[in-house]
Design a binder for these strands. Structure first.
Length: 241
DNA sequence: TCAGCGGGGCTCTAATCACC
DNA sequence: GGTGATTAGAGCCCCGCTGA
């Protein structure tokens, strides 16, 4: 059973002033692995710190999701702003024809070399798996919704979850994972599993809004979500195509 | 015709505000 | 500081459009 990190886990951390945000990400992963290994009575191999200048890293646990939550623009204001960009503001946004939607090129494009180099060579990531390739819809960038939906029907494989994680998702419907966003910033994010009556989906929530904002994600953008593992920790990489 | 899925509405919870 | 009102976030699920 994976335990969440707390401030106590970082009491021995010595901050190097030269660390970039990405180094903090790697350190957190290291601490997480140590904790995991301790619980299994085996010392973990430390991940290699790199000196890339990635920004935007932040740490959140599922127990402080609401801490520091600020009120944001109300929905009406958001809609009014959005209407300004739409051709027919009085009408519902036109649905995208299925042919324009998440039609995955066959074969789907491989992970960009820059991402592969960062994940595999610098982060020591293993087991890269394409989880989904989809077009971003309004609901994916709607700040009120604050979620990225991953419909089961579009998921390439569910193998990115091991048995324990699948069980955790079934039991608690959510788990904390790491997301490497298109600008290569590391973010802690919540992976939820929503079971609907006729279908199910995975949903990235919680810090998704900041990913949208930081990467200027917009409706219509094609993205890929890759999964990989840092030691045993489940991580994702979001790639904008 | 019908299954699938995006869009968005409803409800509950939590944060914040206003007032005492 | 306590309490009720207001507002926004999060989770869930229904509606209806689209394409097979």
């Amino acid at each position: 059973m994976m335990e969440l990190l707390t401030l106590v886990d970082f009491k021995d951390t010595k901050i190097d002033p030269n660390w970039g945000p990405f180094d903090y990400l790697l350190h957190v992963l290291h601490v997480d692995q140590q904790k995991l290994q301790k619980s299994q009575n085996a010392p973990p191999p430390p991940p290699t710190l790199c000196k890339q200048d990635h920004t935007g890293f932040k740490l959140r646990s599922k127990f402080n999701n609401s801490v520091g939550l600020k009120r944001k623009r109300n929905l009406k204001a958001v809609e009014e702003e959005d209407d300004g960009d739409q051709v027919a503001p009085k009408l519902k946004p036109n649905r995208i024809k299925k042919q324009e939607k998440s039609v995955c090129p066959i074969p789907p494009p491989d992970l960009p070399p820059l991402f592969r180099q960062l994940i595999v060579e610098e982060m020591g990531g293993r087991g890269l798996v394409l989880v989904i390739q989809k077009t971003i819809f309004f609901s994916d960038i709607n700040p009120t919704a604050s979620r990225f939906s991953i419909p089961f029907s579009q998921v390439k494989t569910h193998d990115f979850l091991n048995e324990a994680e699948a069980k955790e998702l079934d039991d608690k419907n959510s788990m904390q994972v790491w997301l490497l966003d298109p600008s290569m910033r590391g973010t802690s994010i919540t992976l939820n599993k929503w079971v609907m009556r006729s279908s199910s989906l995975y949903v990235l929530t919680n810090t998704w809004n900041s990913v949208v904002k930081n990467n200027q994600l917009e409706k219509g953008h094609m993205v890929q979500l890759w999964s990989f593992r840092m030691n045993s920790l489940l991580c994702f990489a979001l790639v904008k195509l």
